[in-house]
Design a binder for these strands. Structure first.
Lengths: 201, 201
DNA sequence: TAAAACGTGATACACATGTACCATGAACAT
DNA sequence: ATGTTCATGGTACATGTGTATCACGTTTTA
């Protein structure tokens, strides 16, 4: 009974099936057929809505990015109003740390993509995905604001601190995904370093 | 001319072919046939010296671990004798940062394995590979030594600092492999944070 | 009402992969 | 000298992959 159908809705449905597989079994388990089965549609439909697998991967990645973005916005908004600089920084960093189930999912899926791009650099053509250093400069800006507010030693270099914090958070997240640490332990380590950064000189 | 042959040498030759592929093209490009071609032997020989692909992967991983271990030993030894605590810490961390070609190779290959273990957790059965927290406690021990030597503020928590530094270094390495930063830039960031840690209170 | 476009199913194709099997000649043991 | 083990080559098999093709009913359009 093929009525006129909402293409965007179908694409979303299929792309999210892929993300679900990438989360639970890794991206290389996300074959076209597996995605079709997970989405409950036929293989032909996956091909119909996404001409090629690369297109599907890219579309799903864009949706994942949007989800992360939404999550960060929500966390920053939840950091209180008006937000303190530290509140924003904490929200931003702990948001990309796999602590609760949702962030675990997002982080794990991102890791799957990261793994893919490491070994197949041609698949994802310079798709920045907001990560590269946009986040880093954003972080640095708020660290500078914290300095002006007297919450951070003015002798600190905000750019360096931002780069270090972000790298540390990524590394902590990686260790959590690797099972070497619990999410709470990672958060504790991050908080500890934030405490050290955010203390009057 | 099949003379009696050195098995260990053959295995090493094949395993290193795999590591070479993992470095340049990623682990999923390392099919049995590709490894055979890279090693310049027939597919049958790869099967002969490694019963299964899993065995080959594990053997190669062990060799990679040994290479990293050797590199760390060399760097620590090169840190001077007698080594200062900071020298050891710096050597240890900058050793797992992809700066020169050799460390780039090792780090990239490790990343390939990391990617594999994320998505196929059964392949590498709890093969610690020295990373988990052995390194971390080693680092913490030397940070404590630096505290006793008066090089680090005694108010610092060595465990926390070690965990943070290691995570930061991993994160920096990841960003270098991802092409967002040059190896020297990453090293500069790390050095900056070491400078901040190693200053008299 | 006829024809074109849409949504969907089933299936085929070409290829890559890990593994298993068979063969063969050289080296060694008795 | 002969039979057994060793090292190696070649190749087949079963499976999974992305993609392409054919077919068919439904909806829209002219």
């Amino acid at each position: 009974m093929p009525l006129r159908v909402d293409h965007e809705e179908r694409r979303r449905h299929i792309a999210e099936a892929l993300l679900r597989i990438a989360d639970t079994q890794g991206l290389q388990a996300a074959s076209m057929r597996a995605v079709a089965a997970e989405a409950g549609v036929s293989l032909r439909l996956v091909q119909y809505y996404f001409d090629t697998k690369k297109a599907l991967l890219l579309d799903a990645l864009a949706r994942l990015g949007a989800q992360l973005q939404a999550r960060m916005d929500a966390w920053i908004r939840a950091a209180g109003s008006p937000p303190t600089p530290r509140g924003i920084v904490t929200a931003l960093l702990s948001c990309i740390l796999p602590t609760d189930q949702e962030s675990r999912r997002i982080t794990r899926t991102y890791a799957a993509y990261h793994a893919l791009v490491l070994n197949e650099p041609d698949v994802l053509d310079k798709q920045g995905t907001l990560h590269p250093d946009l986040l880093e400069s954003f972080l640095a800006r708020h660290l500078r604001a914290a300095q002006r507010a007297g919450e951070i030693d003015p002798a600190r270099d905000p750019e360096m601190a931002a780069a270090g914090l972000l790298a540390m958070t990524n590394g902590l997240g990686s260790s959590v995904l690797g099972g070497q640490r619990t999410g709470d332990a990672a958060l504790a380590i991050l908080t500890h370093h934030l405490d050290e950064l955010f203390r009057s000189p």
